[in-house]
Simulated scan of single mutants.
Amino acid sequence: MRDWAVLEEVWEVILDRAEHPSAESYVSSVLTHRKGVDKSLEKVGEEAVEFILAAKNQVPERTVSEAADLLFHFLVALKASGTDVEDVLAELASRRK
């Protein structure tokens, strides 16, 4: 099933956690970390490496899992950097020929 709406739902949760931080929320903990945006960027780097290794080693279930982790942490990093995902989507749309 290809349901791109799940990415929008995840983005909405990230926005909500940024607006209403909670001690129990992983997203809130990343967005309010003492390292600032660096914490979310570290997570993107970590997940990117794990995705690359899984894909290179041709481990399908790990590749899927790590891809999901990478997409999630990428969205959190966008929020942490003050970038709206709509701007990224608009950029991608502008590149279509």
Rank of each mutant, 00 (worst) to 15 (best):
A55D: 04
L89W: 15
L75I: 08
A48C: 13
G45F: 01
A18P: 04
A67N: 00
G45E: 04
E50K: 05
D84V: 03
D3M: 10
A77Q: 00
I14Y: 03
H73Q: 13
G82I: 07
A80P: 03
A90T: 11
V30Q: 07
R17D: 14
A93E: 14
L89H: 09
G36S: 05
H73F: 15
S28V: 05
A93D: 13
R34K: 10
K79T: 08
E8H: 02
E12A: 15
A5K: 11
V44S: 05
T83G: 02
N57T: 01
I52P: 04
E8N: 13
F72E: 11
L92Y: 08
K39H: 12
E61R: 13
E9D: 15
A48G: 12
V27W: 00
L31Y: 00
T32V: 01
K79A: 09
A93G: 06
A5S: 13
T63M: 08
V13G: 02
L71S: 08
L7C: 03
E91P: 00
H73S: 05
A54C: 07
V37W: 03
V30E: 04
S25L: 09
T83A: 14
R34L: 14
A77D: 04
R17I: 06
M1N: 14
D87W: 04
D87S: 14
K35L: 15
A54W: 01
E91A: 15
L53K: 04
L7Q: 08
V44G: 09
S22T: 02
V64K: 05
W4P: 07
Y26F: 15
K97Q: 10
R62T: 04
H73I: 09
V64N: 08
